[in-house]
Computed example of a mutant assay.
Amino acid sequence: MSLLSRERFIAVLAPTRVTLLRAGPGRPAPCGACDCEGGWNGAVDALQGLLREAGARRGEVTVVLSSHFAHFRLVPWSDAISSPAELDAFARIGFEDVYGAVAAGWALRISPEAAGRPRVAVAIDQALLERLHTIVEGAGLRLASVQPYLMAAYNRLQPSLARDDFVFAVAEPGRCSMLLARAGQWLSVRSSAAADNEHAVAALLERECELNGIGDPQSGPVPPVFVHAPGRAASAWPAVEGVAPRALTLGSGDDPWQDMALAVA
């Protein structure tokens, strides 16, 4: 390998496990992993150690964040908003209404949508982003991007989804995040703690459908349901409002954190 060549790493941060992989031709190659505790601070500490062990001094790191470390909200359309700054402020108010003053210290990213349509907003603790920059740059690398896994998985799997109407769930270990779309617009986004079994995920999806009027006689048929569960082999999922979900996979199902890295590989 040339001394001037740049390496690309993918780091997957979850509450109990951090995995570092080296990207290249073919599948990313694992180059370190360790258990952790203590929230995102503990996960970032673990990543710092893994980067030190990897010994890379030239290249970049893409970080995939478990949905445990992100917050999601649907931002309704408002004709009164006329600038990106106003949109950001409007979305931030929504987070603060739910989470309180702590949301003032979160960094926001809002999905681009056509005029008149709701948007999906994701919030990440600004202090987490700053620590990631500090440890990655301290290792002599560049932080290329930080991607919440729900959005990374959706972007990678979107071609497999129905175009205008669908129910999409990402079942990470200990958490289920859900996106609902109807008539080509976002209807709902939610992330909840969940037991690691198919019936618990199906129950959360049914509840989310009921909260949004999906399955009511007046709402028409239930749209296609898709479930992505990193680390689980494709299997038959319990029906959701009478619809059998389709399993979408990225990896072999052997290791959830290695599978999660494939969304950005």
Results as ranks from 00 to 15, higher is better:
residue 194 A to G: 05
residue 251 G to L: 10
residue 55 G to N: 04
residue 205 L to W: 01
residue 177 S to E: 09
residue 74 L to T: 10
residue 111 S to M: 07
residue 141 L to M: 03
residue 265 A to M: 02
residue 66 S to P: 01
residue 236 A to F: 02
residue 87 L to K: 02
residue 51 L to G: 10
residue 15 P to T: 08
residue 180 L to W: 14
residue 223 P to I: 00
residue 151 M to W: 09
residue 119 R to M: 09
residue 157 L to I: 10
residue 157 L to C: 10
residue 180 L to Q: 15
residue 193 A to D: 11
residue 207 R to E: 14
residue 56 A to H: 06
residue 153 A to G: 02
residue 113 E to R: 08
residue 236 A to K: 10
residue 32 G to I: 11
residue 234 A to G: 01
residue 183 A to T: 01
residue 213 G to Y: 10
residue 226 F to K: 03
residue 68 H to Q: 13
residue 35 D to R: 15
residue 105 G to R: 06
residue 40 W to Y: 11
residue 104 A to H: 10
residue 110 I to R: 14
residue 84 P to C: 02
residue 91 A to C: 04
residue 263 A to C: 05
residue 24 G to S: 08
residue 65 L to Y: 09
residue 256 P to K: 13
residue 183 A to V: 00
residue 201 V to L: 01
residue 219 S to D: 14
residue 138 G to M: 05
residue 237 W to N: 05
residue 132 L to H: 04
residue 197 N to V: 02
residue 247 A to I: 08
residue 166 F to Y: 15
residue 138 G to K: 08
residue 37 E to D: 13
residue 27 R to D: 15
residue 75 V to I: 07
residue 71 H to V: 01
residue 160 S to M: 11
residue 62 T to P: 02
residue 109 R to K: 14
residue 262 L to C: 09
residue 97 D to Q: 14
residue 23 A to Y: 07
residue 249 T to L: 13
residue 126 Q to A: 15
